[in-house]
Amino acid sequence: MSIQKNDNTIVIHKASIDDQKIIADLGKKTFDQSYGTFFKNKKNLSEYLESSFSLDKIANSLEKSDNLYWLVRDKQDDAPIGYAKVKLNSPSEFIDSNHVSKLQRIYLLKGYEGKGIGSELHHFILEEVTKTDSTHIWLSNLKIKSQAVAFYKGKSYQIAGEHRFTIGDETFDFWAMYKCLK
């Protein structure tokens, strides 16, 4: 399935195993662009990028039926500019429901933010997840990324709790945010 944004600038389509290299490359680049400056020890960042976005790890993730991936392409030159991943059936300690999905990744390359593409992708994701039995969607958002927190609050997400995530010898504080779907 693919859609075209109203002004025909992007195409969103469901990713397949054939897209593993594109997703791995986008994952490394967009994660670095989004979070790289928050790492004090760049070795932690590079090791995380290599392990989390290896071709094998992405391929295994793409093959799981509960994982949904989408690629965003610039319609002008068909270049991949972002991607998203949702894990269906992903309960959270912060949400009192068994029908929960997690928005694990939604990233755009630097230079594509602030153009409405993230909102369009998010809207598309919600439409797709609403077709499942999920009643809620949740995500983790780095607390100090106030612009991202504001983005999700603007989409009616609420803060449900907080948690920490450790990469190498660095620990980061996150908000768990959720939204009711039904």
Rank of each mutant, 00 (worst) to 15 (best):
L139Y: 04
A59E: 13
A160K: 11
L126A: 09
D78C: 07
K155C: 01
Y152P: 02
F124M: 05
S54V: 06
E128G: 05
L139R: 01
L126E: 15
S156P: 01
G161Q: 08
N89V: 12
A160V: 03
K85P: 11
P80N: 07
T135F: 03
L68N: 09
K75D: 09
D74T: 00
L68T: 06
I125F: 02
A84K: 00
S101W: 05
Y48C: 05
D74P: 00
S52H: 11
Y107W: 09
L88H: 03
E50D: 15
W138G: 03
G82A: 13
E127V: 00
K145Q: 14
I125S: 02
K75H: 07
F124S: 04
R73D: 11
V129F: 03
L121R: 08
D66S: 13
N89T: 11
A160P: 00
V72Y: 03
A150H: 14
L45E: 02
K57H: 10
K155R: 14
A84D: 03
N89M: 14
I58D: 03
K153R: 15
K155I: 01
Q147L: 11
P91N: 03
K153V: 08
L45H: 09
S51W: 01
K43R: 10
L142M: 13
K143F: 07
K87D: 10
N67A: 03
L49Q: 10
F124E: 06
I125K: 06
S61T: 15
